[in-house]
Design a binder for these strands. Structure first.
Lengths: 155, 155
DNA sequence: CTCATTGCAAACGATTTGCATACCG
DNA sequence: CGGTATGCAAATCGTTTGCAATGAG
């Protein structure tokens, strides 16, 4: 059973181009499934989390296959690695520019992305000030989300 | 040979108070040496880096002693853990409030701290907007520092 | 003396890799 | 067929801990 490669969106388009053409990858069934699932979910997965979810939907899959698929996406600029918690890498799909900011709930782990032009602007100014050429940046605000705040109250 | 505990600055003052009194730690010679060295240098050390430097100055010291001294500082609020690179924890002295922002050179690893009231303000606004209670935040700008930019040119 | 601290080696958890096998075009 | 992708188990790397020995008050 082969999987047809449909160009549903920009992701798949970029995948097709980058994978098949540029690097002559054979885009196996398994890899495609992992990648599509990951991109579709659009969450911040650790390798293990993604592996567990994929495993249920496609039994027999190996941890390293998931791991390597994610690494592949990173190397092609289609995913980014994050280190919210120490000792654990999370992967997020790279949709577009500007998604470098996160609100992270320290209790339930919820992650909210946001963009803010004002902050971007200030960052550029600061970098300029120190004569830095910016390649990347990230802003993370840690705290309690609304839900967890309420829970804390009644404990 | 015993080491006298002099109150040179706020750090030592807090150390003395927190360590000796509150927790009845015996502040051994080795631990004091590590802590003083770490605080004086005021850099972003990994355990290993600090260990290597200390080892030269105080042979026979063990890795875990350095590790535990750093953890101790963190638990007393005198140091903070950072995860600039993945899989590696760096420790920085906590001098005062507001030092949560860093410029990190991706080539030479140089780290510059900075504060910016405007950014702090915007962060608060964003958190409020999502009904988050902020406990911590960090902003990291990655790029090439002036020196490394020049080097790149002539390679 | 009593309890904290230390060094070592071993345990740990996440990440990465070597290799034989399966898969793809 | 010739090279890529996969699964497994083992290697790696940073971090953490158990424990017997040492040090401090």
């Amino acid at each position: 059973m082969k999987m047809k490669f449909k160009i549903k969106n920009e992701f798949n388009f970029r995948l097709k181009n980058n994978f098949s053409k540029k690097h002559r990858l054979k885009s196996s069934q398994k890899r495609l499934f992992i990648i599509e699932y990951f991109l579709k979910q659009d969450k911040h997965y650790s390798v293990e989390e993604l592996y567990n979810q994929i495993k249920n939907r496609m039994p027999g899959i190996g941890y390293s296959t998931v791991y390597r698929a994610l690494k592949l996406l990173v190397s092609r600029g289609l995913a980014a690695e994050r280190n919210f918690e120490k000792g654990l890498t999370r992967f997020e799909p790279v949709h577009k520019e500007g998604h470098h900011n996160h609100l992270v709930c320290i209790r339930c782990g919820a992650i909210i992305e946001f963009t803010n032009p004002a902050i971007e602007k200030i960052q550029k100014k600061i970098a300029l000030n120190y004569k830095f050429t910016v390649t990347d940046h990230k802003l993370e605000i840690y705290g309690l989300c609304q839900k967890c705040k309420k829970k804390e109250k009644y404990q």
